[in-house]
C-alpha cells in the first residue's frame, strides 16, 4: 500500500496501450462494423424491392393470363361463326346446283318428248297415208293430196 514510481510507469503504459488501440485496433473494427451495417441495410432494401417486384410480376402474369383466355375465346367463337357460315354457304350453293341440274334435265326431257311426238306424228301421218293408199290404190295421188295430208297432220297436233 505504498506509492512509488510504479505510478508513473503505469501511467505511461496506460497511454501507450490506448494509443496502440486508437491507431491499429479501433479504426478497422469500426469501419468493418459500419460497412456491415450498410451491407445489411442494403440487403434489406434489396429484399423489399425484390418482394415488391415479385408482387408486380404476379399481378402482370394474372393480367396476361386473363387476356390470353379472353382472346382464345374470341378466336374460338369467330372460328365457329366462320365455320357455320361456310357450311351455310356450301349448302346454299349445293341447293342452287341441284335446282339448275333439275331444270336442265326437265328441259331436255321436254325437248325429247316433243321430238318423239313429232316423229310419232310423222309416222302416224305416213301410216295413215299408206293405209289410205292401200285402201284407195291408185286413186290417190300423193302430189294432189299433199295439201290434204298436211291438213291432217295439222289436225293431229
Amino acid at each position: 500500500m505504498n506509492l512509488n514510481a510504479t505510478l508513473i510507469a503505469q501511467l505511461v503504459v496506460f497511454f501507450v496501450l490506448a494509443w496502440f488501440t486508437m491507431k491499429f485496433v479501433w479504426p478497422p473494427i469500426v469501419k468493418a462494423l459500419d460497412e456491415r451495417a450498410k451491407k445489411i441495410a442494403d440487403g434489406l432494401a434489396a429484399a423489399d424491392k425484390a418482394k415488391a417486384d415479385l408482387a408486380l410480376a404476379e399481378k402482370k402474369v394474372v393480367e396476361e393470363l386473363r387476356k390470353a383466355r379472353e382472346s382464345a375465346g374470341d378466336v374460338r367463337s369467330s372460328a365457329e361463326k366462320q365455320a357455320s357460315q361456310l357450311i351455310d354457304e356450301a349448302r346454299a350453293e349445293a341447293g342452287r346446283i341441284i335446282a339448275k341440274a333439275r331444270e336442265a334435265a326437265e328441259a331436255e326431257a321436254g325437248v325429247a318428248a316433243q321430238r318423239a311426238k313429232e316423229a310419232l306424228r310423222d309416222q302416224v301421218a305416213h301410216l295413215a297415208v299408206a293405209g289410205a293408199e292401200k285402201i284407195l290404190r291408185r286413186e290417190i295421188n300423193t302430189q294432189v293430196h299433199a295439201e290434204l295430208l298436211a291438213n291432217l297432220k295439222q289436225e293431229l297436233q
Binding site: N4, A5, T6, L17, V25
Partner: peptide, 28 residues
Amino acid sequence: DWSVINIDSMFYSITIGLLTVFLLWLAA
C-alpha cells in the same frame, strides 16, 4: 518513495497490456 518501482506489477501489467492489444489487434 519515488525511487522504488514494483517489478511484479510492471511485469504483469505490461504483459497483460500487450496481450490485450494483441488480442484486439488480432480481431482488428
